[in-house]
Design a protein around this nucleic acid. Structure first.
Lengths: 247, 247
DNA sequence: AAGTGGTCTAGACCACTAC
DNA sequence: TAGTGGTCTAGACCACTTA
């Protein structure tokens, strides 16, 4: 029997890709919030007019992209940035012996300002758009290791306050999710070697001129929407940046 | 109707996982060489006593892991490290404007020696095992950018010669595949900031003491067999190290 | 035209979770 | 016990490649 599907066939035009886009659209529209369960496979299959197998193939890809999480017997859930969950997917700094631990964060500065041309380009903002800029100092096992200078557009983060950053119970990306409905699903990172300027050296507790790694990260949400621009500097005397490819 | 499969259920014990292991075992045993087509889905389904759908699920995962490549209408092939193919999966250094180009390589040294304790540990070798050690200098767009010190065990690379390295037509990992039957499918990289010593500075054309990125890479084949240990130093004045997570 | 992988279906049964 | 996702089947039809 030929399939008689309800939806039109606009783009890549295979049924399951359309279903995937449909689910992504519902996600981007906030129909299901982070941490919530999405409807059952049977219901979604009916909604999109496809068989379970086809629906599953669409969901399979979203699970592979860490956008959804399945729990057998419970349901399928919108992924969250909870501490124990996918934290190390975006945090790659580990001790040189391989030991992974969660950083403790101290907020060093916070201001509302206007974006530089570089930041405007990275975040896709108009010239002189307003942004929040703040600096976090991260420690691992009581070693000061990272300095993050983070910039986010005011347009997406209306009413962000220093207190919200200081008193957030979990991770930064979890705050983005819960408070602003912004779900980071992808990052683009570029690393260079650099040397510590006086201010950086003081905050990291290293000598001025020490070799550091500089990470420039753009974090994106659904539809490749840029959400956060970040420049990190890492003291790699006892820690290193980990990349696994394959497996 | 219940499935009546031929194989025993040893480990993760779902049918398609067993099929996947069976295909991996055939690959590791060299039953199908790099670049060759594996048997058709119908034949493999018969061989493992499973339906096409189950066989496909096993192959799907191997394709997702870049171990096999499917070409509609032609067949399924063992992945190769051909230049145009997956080269940038293991080579992450790009120009700061994002432009990707293939490096030109010059071999700076080549020797047979005994492994240091560190190398023995990384490559899983016995104390004092014999290894080949060579240094490559890589240029991108006529800029000298990378210095690779590469160590491989003699046990896996019997009869490796300087000439083979100098006159290889394609990539290094392609040489490993074609000449030694060693298929790199995974790497573990750890990055630190470092400063250029005199020898490194001279070869990279930078000042002694310049900040560089140091990459320590272990490259592995099937069954997590360590094949190559490599320490690279990168001049990031005009280039950077690229990591994309998600999508 | 024959053979390959790619998509899709409809339904069975299993394993796990919650009530 | 009811509902969820997880696995598996058997086969139809499509799209592409090769000859």
């Amino acid at each position: 029997m030929n399939h008689t599907h309800i939806m039109a066939a606009p783009l890549g035009s295979t049924l399951y890709k359309e279903v995937k886009q449909g689910v992504l659209a519902a996600l981007a529209a906030g129909e299901w919030k982070a941490g919530e369960a999405i409807p059952s496979e049977r219901l979604l299959g009916e909604r999109f007019g496809v068989s379970i197998g086809t629906l599953r193939k669409a969901i399979d890809e979203l699970v592979a992209e860490n956008i959804l999480i399945r729990h057998q017997g419970r349901g399928t859930f919108v992924a969250t940035h909870a501490r124990d969950h996918h934290f190390f997917r975006f945090f790659r700094v580990v001790r040189q012996d391989g030991y992974k631990s969660y950083p403790s964060v101290s907020l060093e500065s916070f201001q509302k300002t206007r974006a530089t041309p570089l930041v405007c380009e990275k975040l896709g903002l108009g010239t002189g758009a307003r942004v929040f800029e703040f600096v976090n100092r991260l420690s691992l096992n009581d070693d000061v290791v990272l300095l993050d200078r983070i910039t986010v557009p005011e347009a997406l983060f209306a009413d962000l306050t220093e207190t919200m950053l200081r008193e957030r119970p979990t991770t930064l990306y979890n705050l983005y999710q819960d408070t602003f409905g912004l779900n980071i699903i992808r990052t683009d990172e570029r690393l260079r070697a650099c040397t510590a300027d006086a201010a950086t050296a003081a905050l990291l507790g290293v000598d001025e001129g020490s070799a550091l790694i500089e990470i420039r990260r753009l974090a994106l949400s659904y539809n490749n929407q840029p959400v956060e621009w970040r420049i990190s500097r890492v003291n790699t005397d006892k820690y290193e940046y980990l990349v696994n490819e394959g497996a």
